[in-house]
Design a protein around this nucleic acid. Structure first.
Lengths: 134, 134
DNA sequence: AATATACCCTATCGGGTTAATAGGTTATTA
DNA sequence: TAATAACCTATTAACCCGATAGGGTATATT
């Protein structure tokens, strides 16, 4: 399961992507249209700004806007930044790798191979899809 | 990411599956060989018993044993019982379905279709694999 | 310059889950 | 009857999740 933060983040980005490119979209507009708590959405969008996906403009007529065209933003990159690792085990993660303390070797591990297969299948989808597919 | 409970559970079941069928395996043996906390493993195996995957025998020579041959136990069923939903969103889950409160309709939802695709790809793997594949 | 707008910042919150640990009880077998 | 090993209850620290609160700051319009 992905977190609500991730779900809201994707919905909000999709909403922004559907507006005219480069024109700031207000948090309040998104929160109303997509039924997301205003304050919670503020946190999420601020996070996406910090991570380099969004730019912002303060004051009247301000809001958040995409820093790259929607078709250049992969779902995989968004999942990683909003939800963390895509892989199901740390020892199988490409971007958040961590060794298992309980295994002697990853070659001998009974789970390793299977979870690599799962990971690759998921990545095959989410690396190819972009914001403009939503 | 799957929980440690799930990881330990799969490793333990795989261990049991590798022993002679029908002969009880002690928690202490599994916990030693697989580097899992004894007490934590007790909880996990008790749970798997309650859910119908394992049988148990008390006293000397006791332990846990599989109730079905390993090749009849799908990874999907184990993931669901240990980790909960496999799908990434409740509105896309086959076994733990829940409607989204923030969406008007699932047809119009920007995320729905994509997460169905992800789900189906994952299921395609874990429904086919069984304990004997580990 | 005043005012409204809208992002920005810090902080706090209850509630829940996770991953254990501790210690005793019961059933079984040799 | 003694050893074994599952079973049961409970408690724990740490962490995360989803959300709320209350202001501060920059910008644009009038």
């Amino acid at each position: 399961m992905i977190s609500k933060k991730t779900k809201y983040g994707l919905k909000a980005l999709s909403y922004i992507a559907r507006q005219e490119y480069g024109v700031p979209v207000q948090v309040s507009e998104i929160s109303t249209k997509e039924n997301i708590s205003h304050k919670f959405l503020e946190i999420i969008l601020a996070d996406l700004k910090k991570k380099g996906f969004l730019g912002s403009k303060k004051g009247k007529g301000g809001g958040y806007y995409l820093l790259k065209p929607a078709n250049e933003i992969t779902i995989a990159s968004l999942l990683r930044t909003l939800d963390g690792p895509i892989a199901w085990l740390p020892c199988v993660s490409l971007n958040y790798y961590e060794r298992c303390t309980d295994c002697d070797s990853e070659e001998k591990c009974r789970l390793n191979a299977m979870f690599i297969e799962v990971r690759d299948n998921i990545l095959d989808i989410v690396e190819k899809k972009t914001l403009s597919d939503l």
